[in-house]
Amino acid sequence: AAAASRGRLRAFSAVLDAVYAPPVRWTERITDETVVCRCEEVTGGAVRAAVEELGAGDVRTVKLLTRAGMGWCQGRMCEPAVAGLTGCEQAPVRRLLARPVPLGVLAASGEPTDD
Protein backbone atom coordinates (compact mmCIF):
# COMPACT_ATOMS: atom_id res chain seq x y z
CA ALA A 1 0.00 0.00 0.00
CA ALA A 2 2.83 2.37 0.86
CA ALA A 3 4.58 1.73 -2.46
CA ALA A 4 1.35 2.35 -4.39
CA SER A 5 0.76 5.59 -2.49
CA ARG A 6 4.33 6.70 -3.15
CA GLY A 7 3.89 5.94 -6.86
CA ARG A 8 0.71 8.02 -7.04
CA LEU A 9 2.35 10.92 -5.23
CA ARG A 10 5.41 10.82 -7.49
CA ALA A 11 3.14 10.82 -10.56
CA PHE A 12 1.26 13.80 -9.15
CA SER A 13 4.56 15.56 -8.49
CA ALA A 14 5.64 14.95 -12.10
CA VAL A 15 2.39 16.47 -13.38
CA LEU A 16 2.92 19.56 -11.19
CA ASP A 17 6.49 19.89 -12.50
CA ALA A 18 5.19 19.76 -16.09
CA VAL A 19 2.36 22.24 -15.50
CA TYR A 20 4.50 24.76 -13.64
CA ALA A 21 7.66 24.47 -15.72
CA PRO A 22 9.46 27.81 -16.03
CA PRO A 23 9.20 29.60 -19.37
CA VAL A 24 11.90 29.21 -21.98
CA ARG A 25 14.90 31.50 -21.39
CA TRP A 26 13.52 32.61 -18.03
CA THR A 27 16.99 33.51 -16.77
CA GLU A 28 17.09 36.43 -19.22
CA ARG A 29 14.16 37.96 -17.34
CA ILE A 30 16.14 38.10 -14.08
CA THR A 31 17.67 41.56 -13.74
CA ASP A 32 20.64 42.40 -11.56
CA GLU A 33 18.22 43.92 -9.02
CA THR A 34 15.90 40.89 -8.87
CA VAL A 35 16.04 39.24 -5.46
CA VAL A 36 16.78 35.57 -6.05
CA CYS A 37 17.23 34.47 -2.43
CA ARG A 38 14.70 36.18 -0.20
CA CYS A 39 16.09 34.80 3.05
CA GLU A 40 19.56 36.28 2.52
CA GLU A 41 18.49 39.08 0.10
CA VAL A 42 20.85 37.92 -2.66
CA THR A 43 20.18 39.46 -6.07
CA GLY A 44 20.54 38.05 -9.55
CA GLY A 45 23.45 40.44 -10.07
CA ALA A 46 25.31 38.98 -7.08
CA VAL A 47 24.81 35.44 -8.40
CA ARG A 48 25.99 36.43 -11.87
CA ALA A 49 29.01 38.24 -10.39
CA ALA A 50 29.94 35.13 -8.41
CA VAL A 51 29.97 33.15 -11.66
CA GLU A 52 31.47 35.69 -14.05
CA GLU A 53 33.90 37.60 -11.81
CA LEU A 54 34.73 35.16 -9.03
CA GLY A 55 34.73 31.97 -11.12
CA ALA A 56 32.03 30.00 -9.33
CA GLY A 57 31.23 26.94 -11.41
CA ASP A 58 28.55 25.25 -9.34
CA VAL A 59 25.66 26.01 -7.02
CA ARG A 60 27.65 25.14 -3.89
CA THR A 61 30.37 27.66 -4.72
CA VAL A 62 27.79 30.37 -5.47
CA LYS A 63 26.21 29.58 -2.12
CA LEU A 64 29.55 30.01 -0.35
CA LEU A 65 30.33 33.29 -2.15
CA THR A 66 26.91 34.94 -1.95
CA ARG A 67 25.05 33.21 0.94
CA ALA A 68 22.22 32.33 -1.48
CA GLY A 69 20.51 29.31 0.04
CA MET A 70 21.93 29.76 3.53
CA GLY A 71 18.84 31.33 5.08
CA TRP A 72 15.78 29.89 6.79
CA CYS A 73 14.66 27.82 3.79
CA GLN A 74 18.14 26.32 3.25
CA GLY A 75 17.79 26.74 -0.51
CA ARG A 76 14.42 25.02 -0.82
CA MET A 77 12.99 28.13 -2.49
CA CYS A 78 15.94 29.70 -4.29
CA GLU A 79 18.11 26.77 -5.37
CA PRO A 80 16.31 26.28 -8.72
CA ALA A 81 16.85 29.95 -9.57
CA VAL A 82 20.48 29.90 -8.47
CA ALA A 83 21.09 26.72 -10.47
CA GLY A 84 19.48 28.29 -13.53
CA LEU A 85 21.52 31.47 -13.27
CA THR A 86 24.76 29.54 -12.85
CA GLY A 87 23.95 27.26 -15.78
CA CYS A 88 24.21 24.17 -13.59
CA GLU A 89 21.90 21.23 -13.27
CA GLN A 90 19.88 21.31 -10.10
CA ALA A 91 20.87 18.25 -8.11
CA PRO A 92 18.02 16.41 -6.42
CA VAL A 93 18.29 16.93 -2.70
CA ARG A 94 17.62 14.07 -0.35
CA ARG A 95 16.87 15.48 3.07
CA LEU A 96 16.44 13.28 6.09
CA LEU A 97 12.91 12.88 7.33
CA ALA A 98 13.98 13.60 10.87
CA ARG A 99 14.37 16.50 13.19
CA PRO A 100 16.99 17.28 15.80
CA VAL A 101 16.47 16.05 19.35
CA PRO A 102 17.27 18.55 22.11
CA LEU A 103 20.15 17.53 24.35
CA GLY A 104 17.90 17.80 27.41
CA VAL A 105 15.66 15.07 26.03
CA LEU A 106 18.64 12.82 25.38
CA ALA A 107 20.05 13.49 28.84
CA ALA A 108 16.74 12.77 30.52
CA SER A 109 16.32 9.50 28.64
CA GLY A 110 19.35 8.00 30.40
CA GLU A 111 18.14 8.77 33.92
CA PRO A 112 16.82 5.85 35.98
CA THR A 113 13.15 5.93 36.90
CA ASP A 114 11.52 5.07 40.24
CA ASP A 115 9.42 2.20 38.88
Rank of each mutant, 00 (worst) to 15 (best):
A91H: 09
R67C: 07
C88N: 13
V105C: 09
D17N: 10
A91S: 11
A18N: 04
A91M: 10
D58S: 12
F12R: 06
R94G: 03
A14V: 06
R29V: 04
Q90S: 05
E53K: 07
A98C: 13
G57F: 09
A68Y: 03
G45C: 04
A3W: 09
V42A: 10
T113V: 13
S5L: 15
R60E: 07
Q74H: 11
E28Q: 09
V101L: 14
G7M: 15
G55S: 00
E28N: 07
G71N: 04
G45F: 11
E28P: 01
Y20N: 08
L85F: 13
A21H: 09
G110P: 01
A50D: 07
V42Y: 10
S13K: 10
V82Y: 01
L9G: 06
G71R: 11
R67I: 01
A4I: 07
V59E: 00
D115W: 05
R29E: 03
G44V: 11
E111Q: 14
E41Q: 15
R8I: 05
V93C: 06
L65S: 02
A108Y: 06
R6F: 07
E33R: 14
A4Q: 13
P22L: 15
E53P: 01
M70C: 10
R48L: 03
D32C: 02
G87W: 03
E33K: 09
M77N: 08
P23A: 15
A68E: 02
A83G: 05
V24Q: 12
G87E: 03
E111V: 10
V42H: 12
V15T: 09
T43D: 10
R10T: 12
T66S: 06
G55C: 01
E40V: 13
C37D: 15
E89W: 10
V62H: 15
I30T: 00
V101A: 05
C78P: 04
A11L: 10
A46I: 05
Q90T: 03
A49Y: 02
G55E: 00
G45Y: 08
D115L: 14
A14G: 09
E40C: 15
A21Q: 14
R29A: 09
V47W: 00
K63R: 13
C73W: 01
C88F: 07
E40D: 08
P23Y: 07
G57L: 11
V105Y: 12
K63D: 07
G55P: 01
G87C: 04
G87N: 02
V19H: 09
R99V: 14
A56E: 02
A91V: 12
P92D: 07
G57N: 11
R38N: 12
P100D: 14
T34F: 05
A68V: 01
D114M: 03
V93G: 04
E40F: 05
T61A: 11
G75E: 00
G87T: 05
A56R: 00
E79P: 02
A2C: 10
V105M: 12
P80S: 05
A4T: 10
R29D: 03
V101H: 02
D32S: 09
K63T: 13
A46P: 01
A108E: 15
V59P: 00
G84M: 08
V47Y: 01
L85N: 06
